[in-house]
Every structure is written in structure tokens, then in C-alpha cells.
Simulated scan of single mutants.
Amino acid sequence: MIHGKPLHHAIHTATLGAVLAGGLVLSASAMAAPQGLYSADELMDADVYSTAGTAQIGEVEDILLDNDMTVRALVVDTGSLLDLKGNQQFVVEAGKFTVETHNGNSLEEIEYQVNIDLSEAELVQQPAYTNDWWQNARQGAQQAWENTKEGAASAWESTQEGASRALDRIGQALENVGEKTQDAANQ
């Protein structure tokens, strides 16, 4: 008995905690797994359509990646398609667009169409792709990356410490049971 609970209950609780902690790490890795394979070369200059309309509103000018090479955003060049003065380029974050593949069985004929979940009015409200935006986004992304690394390291250390303490308690409980069993056998 440990704190009024049978030994097997304490072992089960500690084991379940360790499995759950490990499962969270596996789940995070599984979520990062790619869902398909895309050609960046073919994605460049792909036509961009708004899901709110049927007319082309631009084309992909650039693909923005973060430190772990995940697509963070696309830069959409509206050219003269939206009746804006001069070429305008807007940053459309991941989650606000989908990529539709045409002729995907042939690398020579593959084509992409990007569909953004924004109306034309909402598109022009997205950040303009300028040097100022680039500098601010780059610094913000780097800081977020550092914070994530620090948080992950701290969480891992806490998990290790908790698992170590649980294993120490289990070891002590087993030792106590062994001593009590030995004492009972000697009597």
C-alpha cells in the first residue's frame, strides 16, 4: 500500500503518465508529417482564385517558409487583375489557401491552382509584401522559434523530472514491499 492505495495502482498511474507524456511527443511529430508532395517550381506563378468568385485574382509570386521549412504563407501578385494601381503583392498565410493539383500523375504536365479563402476585398486587407513587412515578420518568426525551442526544452525537462520522481517512488515502494515480505517470512 502506498498512501492508502495498492502498489499496482501506483505503478499503473506512473506508467500511464509516462505513456501519455511520450504520446504527446509522438502526436506533435505526427502532426508535422507532410500530407503530400508539391513542386515549388510549379507552384510559382500558379493562378490564384478567390473561393468567393470564379475570376483569377492573381498568381503566386513567392513561397515563404519558416525555420523548419514549413510553408508559412504565399505571396500573391495581383498584377492588374483587381483594378489596383500598380502591381500589388499580398501575404496570404497558410490556412487561408488551398492548392488544387491538376495532371498530378505527370511531372511534365503538373499544374496547380491556388484557392484563397478570402474575397477580393479581404485580400487587399492582407499585409503588403514589402521590405518593412519582411523585416518585421522575420524578426517575429525568429523570436517565436526561440520561444518554441525554450518551451519545448522546458517541457521535456519537466517530463523527465516527473518520470524520474515517479520511478524513484515506484522503486522505493517495491523496496518497501520486498522488506516487508522478507520481515514476514522471517517471523
Score class of each variant (00 low, 15 high):
Gln160Leu: 10
Thr13Trp: 01
Gly140Arg: 01
Gly23Glu: 01
Asn136Arg: 10
Glu150Met: 07
Ser29His: 14
Glu109Trp: 05
Ala155His: 06
Leu24Pro: 02
Thr98Ala: 13
Asp66Cys: 02
Ala152Asn: 13
Ser39Cys: 04
Thr101Glu: 01
Ala55Leu: 12
Pro34Gln: 01
Leu81Val: 06
Ser164Gly: 08
Glu146His: 05
Gly53Tyr: 12
Asp83Cys: 02
Tyr38Val: 09
Gln172Asn: 10
Val124Cys: 03
Asn115Ala: 10
Ser164Phe: 04
Leu64Asp: 05
Asn103Ser: 03
Ser119Asp: 09
Trp134Pro: 00
Ala46Cys: 06
Asp168Val: 09
Ser154Gly: 03
Asn87Ala: 08
Pro6Gly: 00
Arg138Met: 10
Asp62Cys: 05
Gly23Ile: 01
Val25Gly: 02
Arg165Tyr: 07
Val60Trp: 01
Ser29Val: 15
Ala144Lys: 11
Thr181Gln: 04
Ala73Asn: 05
Ile11Pro: 00
Ser50Asp: 11
Leu174Ala: 07
Thr130Ile: 07
Gly151Ala: 15
Val60Asn: 06
Val92Arg: 02
Leu65Ser: 08
Gln56Thr: 10
Lys149Pro: 02
Leu82Ile: 02
Asp68Tyr: 12
Thr51Leu: 12
Leu20Lys: 14
Gly58Trp: 01
Asp41Glu: 12
Ile170Ala: 08
Thr101Cys: 01
Leu84Lys: 11
Gly140Lys: 03
Gln143Gly: 00
Asp66Trp: 01
Thr101Lys: 03
Phe90Ser: 06
Glu59Asp: 15
Met31His: 13
Asp66Val: 05
Ser39Gln: 05
Gln172Ile: 10
Thr15Val: 13
Ser50Ile: 04
Leu20Arg: 14
Glu122Leu: 03
Ser106Phe: 10
Ile63Glu: 03
Trp156Phe: 12
Leu107Asp: 09
Val75Ala: 09
Ser80Val: 00
Met31Ser: 15
Arg138Lys: 09
Gly17Val: 00
Leu37Asn: 06
Leu167Glu: 07
Ser154Glu: 13
Gln172Val: 08
Asp47Gln: 12
Val91Tyr: 02
Ala73Phe: 00
Ser29Glu: 14
Ala173Asp: 06
Asn186Tyr: 09
Glu111Leu: 07
Val48Leu: 08
Pro34His: 02
Thr101Phe: 01
Thr148Asn: 12
Ala55Gly: 11
